[in-house]
Computed example of a mutant assay.
Amino acid sequence: MRAGETLGSASGTSQHRDPTPLTWEVGIDVGGTGSRLRGAPTTPDAGSVEPVDLTGDPVRFVSGRSNAPTVVGDLCRRFAEKAGTNSTAAAVVGMRGLRSMVVSRTLNPYAVHDTLSGELGTARTAVASDTIIAHLGALQGRSGATLAVGSGAVAIGDDDTGRLHIADGLGPLIGDNGGGSWIGEEGLRAAARASYHDARGSERLLTAAIERLGQPETWESRLRDAPDRVRVLADFAPVVVRAAAEDDVVCQKILRESAELLTDCLASVLSRPGVRQVAATTGRLMAVGSPLRAAVHGLMPVKRVGVELVDAAATPLDGALLLARRLVEDPEFPSYRPLLTVRTTG
């Protein structure tokens, strides 16, 4: 059965009964490379109605402002079309770079709240950093710490009083150490060195970089002011990871340095008083089988003795839905500005 359809009579007779209106909880994960929405039906007798899954555009900056409200609005309108006239109990957006956008005033999170309320008709909304929803998804709402490694890198933990502790996630210019854009940039540096026969270079990376970006003398101008610079660098990271797995010694050195930075980041959160000594890693560079994941998991017990490393239980999108459920159950759920703002008006 398609989402938004309701269960009618079991037979083709003229007997009908009024269907129970469906209620939905909506989670949205918005990043620099794309966005995703999942609507989950919560009405007890929803039967075989399946979740609604949609994909959308990434967030961009237009005239110095984030277009996140536009991206979220498009997803919400498309969801509402599929779900028909059914109601949304709560909606949550998790967004990459939220903290820096709020602090720099390139995004007002309440504009996103307005979009959620306006398009979905819900009175319970949350706008969160992608770090928050990744943490909730990875540990299924339990306390502990999470290291998320995508284009950036950030660790988050919650202590026994409910306070949040964050390490890194400061963006590619001054932070995100060891993350995807960091690895990609180090890989391009190694490729550039190979172009002038420096022993610290990697011929394999040079070949791959030329295929993607052209000749080395054009890379600086290509990347300097490119709006997609972080994405281009992060997209080169898997090339470095694969080369390391195939015994490229230069790439292996880059991954060792990345693992050191990432484990230090996670250890700093775990060292805060009251943080439960359980940690999960998440993000595309931390997939099972990744040599970077193996390096981090190998170093972590040395950096922080006694830490229990667990597999991420679910995705950031699942974390957004979990937070939506909490908003339904607890309208007084607190905000943690600028990482999380909550609005409940009814």
Rank of each mutant, 00 (worst) to 15 (best):
V232S: 15
E308C: 10
G84E: 05
E217N: 15
F61S: 12
T23G: 12
L327F: 13
L22R: 06
T207Y: 13
L54D: 08
H113Q: 12
G32T: 03
A145P: 08
P69F: 05
E332A: 15
L139S: 09
T263F: 07
G178S: 05
N86I: 12
A192P: 10
T161R: 15
L323G: 09
G31P: 01
D159F: 10
R36T: 01
L139M: 00
T146L: 00
L270I: 05
A68T: 13
G64I: 03
W219S: 06
G187M: 10
S104Y: 10
L323C: 03
G27I: 04
T122L: 08
P334F: 10
G152W: 02
P21C: 02
T106P: 11
F61H: 15
E50Y: 14
D29P: 02
L54W: 04
R293C: 14
D18N: 04
L213K: 05
T23P: 11
L223C: 01
S100A: 14
G152M: 03
T6I: 13
G97T: 10
S221E: 15
R325F: 12
A280R: 12
A294P: 01
L22M: 00
A267P: 00
L188Y: 07
L173H: 15
V278W: 01
E257A: 09
T263M: 02
D130F: 07
R242V: 02
K303V: 11
L266V: 04
G32N: 02
G179I: 02
G289K: 06
D74N: 12
V112Y: 03
A267V: 01
L266H: 04
V307W: 01
Q215E: 15
S87K: 12
T315W: 09
T341W: 13
N108E: 07
A295P: 06
R337C: 12
S195H: 07
D130S: 09
R36W: 11
I183R: 01
V72S: 07
V72C: 10
T115W: 06
R2Y: 13
R189L: 14
F61Y: 10
V154G: 07
A295I: 05
A294W: 02
N67E: 04
T106A: 08
